[in-house]
């Protein structure tokens, strides 16, 4: 007679079950692409074995910005005001560089009201995974066009967009971002690899995820619908992410694979899918992006990668420890120093 013991939950490399990485129940519409992204974020942090308490989650306002409540309950969250998540994240991560930052934003929050802060975040290369859940439409206010809607794309209630869309990936590359990716919430495998690589990147990592709005922008005539994205997605490559702690790297014949090492020892491995594309060659990347816009292609993958780019904290040359823990002994000059300073004003 042997009693059947319940199977112990599967744990990650720091011994935590996946449940420790989950969040509150989503209140988004059933079938929303954002919930898929949320799940991938949970999986990425769990698989990488990052302690949830080390993670700081940031967002602005909008459907996408609600999602940090739906993952990593044991991490700290900041749901900021509309379009201003980058500055709040910048302050927090400068104050405590030990935090691992992930921001989730939308196309309205980033490409319209928050475009200025997005631009300057990228320019500073703050270490932050910046996920844009891009559906081309304002969901919470019920279906107005956003600044990433394609020319000719139609609203659910009729009416076509005739303003040029802002390509957040192209913009980020032009601004010198060291990690720029585009993905699709329907391509979970690719998104997972991209998220893990982005988390390992020590600079701003922009991930523009086409994440269809099932309620307001999933109709015939929309270029951000599931069907349109599924029909038009063209991966530039297959991506494998090998974290620094994983030493089970398989031998792969040269010629078909390109490895890009990260400073922490992780490797992003690109498998060719028949297209000649080098994500570290900025000229080629920009030319490919420009052509794809004209050709109305939906290219996905890690578009551009420059892992060695110095982050803002290294430019500011701040100490590695959190500024938050410094006390009087480190911060307050001595009485003698005060007297010496004041002597200049006598």
């Amino acid at each position: 007679m042997s009693a059947t013991l319940p199977a112990a939950p599967k744990t990650n490399r720091i011994g935590l079950p996946k449940a420790d990485y989950e969040g509150a129940k989503s209140t988004l519409c059933l079938g929303c692409g954002h919930d898929v992204v949320t799940k991938q974020i949970v999986t990425a942090f769990w698989e990488l074995g990052i302690e949830p308490r080390r993670v700081a989650k940031f967002s602005g306002i909008g459907c996408s910005s609600k999602t940090p409540a739906y993952f990593l309950n044991r991490a700290w969250g900041v749901n900021a005001v509309h379009g201003r998540m980058p500055s709040v994240a910048t302050g927090a991560l400068l104050a405590n560089p030990e935090l691992i930052g992930i921001g989730v934003s939308g196309d309205g929050d980033t490409a319209s009201i928050g475009i200025g802060q997005f631009v300057h975040l990228v320019r500073r290369n703050m270490p932050l995974v910046y996920v844009v859940e891009n559906n081309g439409v304002y969901g919470l206010t019920k279906g107005q066009f956003s600044a990433t809607a394609d020319v000719g794309s139609t609203l659910k209630g009729g009416g076509a967009n005739d303003l040029v869309p802002i390509d957040l990936c192209g913009l980020a590359i032009e601004l010198g971002c060291g990690f720029v990716a585009r993905s699709f919430s329907g391509d979970m495998k690719q998104l997972q690899s991209i998220l893990q690589a982005a988390i390992a990147h020590r600079g701003t990592a922009v991930i523009d995820v086409i994440s269809p709005c099932v309620t307001f922008n999933d109709h015939e005539g929309s270029t951000k619908s599931y069907k349109y994205a599924k029909d038009h997605e063209e991966p530039l490559h297959e991506i494998g992410f090998v974290p620094y702690f994983d030493d089970t790297v398989a031998e792969i014949p040269p010629g078909e694979v390109m490895d890009v090492p990260f400073p922490d020892g992780s490797v992003v491995r690109f498998h060719s899918v028949g297209r000649d594309y080098d994500p570290t060659d900025k000229d080629q990347v920009l030319a490919t992006l420009h052509r794809s816009r004209t050709a109305k292609e939906f290219l996905t993958g890690i578009l551009y990668l420059e892992p060695e780019k110095p982050s803002f904290a290294s430019l500011l040359n701040t100490v590695e420890e959190p500024l938050t823990t410094l006390g009087e002994d480190r911060l307050r000059p001595s009485p003698g120093m005060l007297a010496a300073i004041l002597e200049r004003y006598r």
Partner: peptide, 9 residues
């Protein structure tokens, strides 16, 4: 925004 982020931290 940065002040509030830093203060929060």
């Amino acid at each position: 925004g940065m002040v509030l982020g830093a203060g929060w931290a």
